[in-house]
C-alpha cells in the first residue's frame, strides 16, 4: 500500500475491516438464532399441551364429540391415502414436464412464457387451487367430495413446485456428461434415462420432499373440496369420503372448550411425526442414489 496511504491510515482501515467482518458474523448468527428460538417455542408449546392427550387411544380412535374420546386415526389414514395419490401423480407429471422444458422444448418466447407461468403458479395461494379443484374435479368430473378429488387437487397444488425443483436439478447436470453420451451415438432418450435423470435424482427428491411436506400440511384447499371434519369410517375407495390430519386439527381447534386445543396439539405432534418419518424415508432414498452416482 506504500504511496497510496500512510501507515496510520492503513492501520485504521485494517481495524475497521476486521470490525465490519465481526459485525456481519454476529448479524448472521443472530438471524439463525431467532429462527431457532421460535422453533423451540413452537415445539415446547405443542409438546406441553399435546403430550397429555397423546396415547394409543388417540392414535387409534375416530373423531368423537368429547375431547377425551377423540382420536386422529381417520386423519392419519386419510393423509397417507392422499399422499399415495399426490406423490405418483405430481412426480410423474412434474418430472415429465421438467424434462420436456429442459431437454426438448425449443428455447423461444413461448417456452419462456410457460416457464414464468409455472414459477408464478408455485406462488399462487393454495385456496385458489381448492376452488379450481372444486370446479373441475368435484363438479365437472363428478368425483364429488371424494379422496380422489382431494388428491388430484393437492397434486395440482404441488405440481409447480416439483416442476421448478426438477428443472433446477436437471439443469445442474453438467453439459460435458450429456456431450459424452451424445458423442457415443446415444439418442436423447437414452441420454436422459442413463445420464441426466440418475444425476438429477437427488435434487428432484429434495424438491419433492418439500413439495409433499407442503401437501401433507395443507388445510385450505381440502376444506373447499370437501374433506369431512368428522368421519367415523376409513375411505373404502378413492371415491369415498375422507379426512386428513390438518383438517382434524383445524376442526378441533375451532371448537369451544378448554380441552379441545390440547387435543389439537396432540394432533399436531402426530402430524409432525408423520412428516419427519416421510422426510426420513425420502432422505434415505436420496442418499442411496447419491452413493450410486
Amino acid at each position: 500500500m506504500n504511496g497510496f496511504m500512510s501507515k496510520e491510515q492503513w492501520k485504521k482501515r485494517l481495524n475497521r475491516r476486521i470490525l465490519v467482518n465481526r459485525i456481519f458474523y454476529i448479524l448472521f448468527f443472530a438471524a439463525t438464532t431467532i429462527g431457532l428460538i421460535f422453533l423451540a417455542m413452537l415445539l415446547y408449546r405443542v409438546l406441553t399441551q399435546g403430550l397429555g392427550c397423546l396415547n394409543m387411544d388417540f392414535i387409534k380412535g375416530f373423531p368423537a364429540p368429547y375431547p377425551d374420546e377423540a382420536g386422529i386415526y381417520a386423519g392419519i389414514v386419510g393423509s397417507i391415502y392422499l399422499i399415495a395419490i399426490v406423490a405418483p401423480v405430481s412426480l410423474v407429471l412434474g418430472v415429465s414436464t421438467a424434462i420436456y422444458l429442459e431437454e426438448y422444448a425449443p428455447k423461444n418466447r413461448i417456452s419462456r412464457f410457460i416457464q414464468s407461468n409455472i414459477q408464478n403458479l408455485a406462488g399462487v395461494p393454495s385456496i385458489v387451487f381448492g376452488l379450481l379443484g372444486l370446479t373441475f374435479f368435484v363438479y365437472m368430473m363428478g368425483f364429488g367430495y371424494s379422496l380422489l378429488a382431494g388428491g388430484l387437487t393437492m397434486s395440482l397444488l404441488v405440481l409447480p413446485i416439483i416442476v421448478v425443483a426438477a428443472q433446477e436439478a436437471i439443469r445442474s447436470v453438467p453439459n460435458e456428461l450429456k456431450e459424452a453420451s451424445y458423442g457415443m451415438g446415444a439418442t436423447k432418450w437414452q441420454t436422459i434415462v442413463r445420464v441426466v435423470l440418475p444425476a438429477s435424482v437427488p435434487g428432484i427428491l429434495t424438491g419433492s420432499i418439500l413439495a409433499l411436506s407442503r401437501a401433507i400440511g395443507e388445510t385450505a384447499p381440502l376444506l373447499i373440496v370437501g374433506a369431512a371434519a368428522a368421519i367415523y369410517t376409513l375411505p373404502d375407495s378413492v371415491f369415498g369420503p375422507y379426512t386428513a390430519m390438518p383438517i382434524q386439527i383445524y376442526s378441533w381447534i375451532s371448537r369451544p372448550g378448554e380441552e379441545w386445543p390440547l387435543v389439537a396439539a396432540a394432533g399436531i405432534i402426530v402430524l409432525l411425526a408423520v412428516l419427519l418419518l416421510m422426510n426420513a424415508v425420502a432422505v434415505i432414498i436420496r442418499n442411496k442414489f447419491q452413493k450410486r452416482y
Binding site: 453438467p174 460435458e176 456428461l177 456431450e179 459424452a180 453420451s181 457415443m184 446415444a186 444425476a199 452416482y293
Partner: peptide
C-alpha cells in the same frame, strides 16, 4: 441419422468427462 454417424466418428473432449459411474 446422427446416432449412426457418431458411432463411426467417436469423440474425446477437452476436459476429461467420465460419467459418475
Amino acid at each position: 441419422n446422427v446416432e449412426d454417424l457418431r458411432t463411426h466418428v467417436g469423440m474425446v473432449f477437452q476436459k476429461p468427462n467420465p460419467f459418475p459411474k
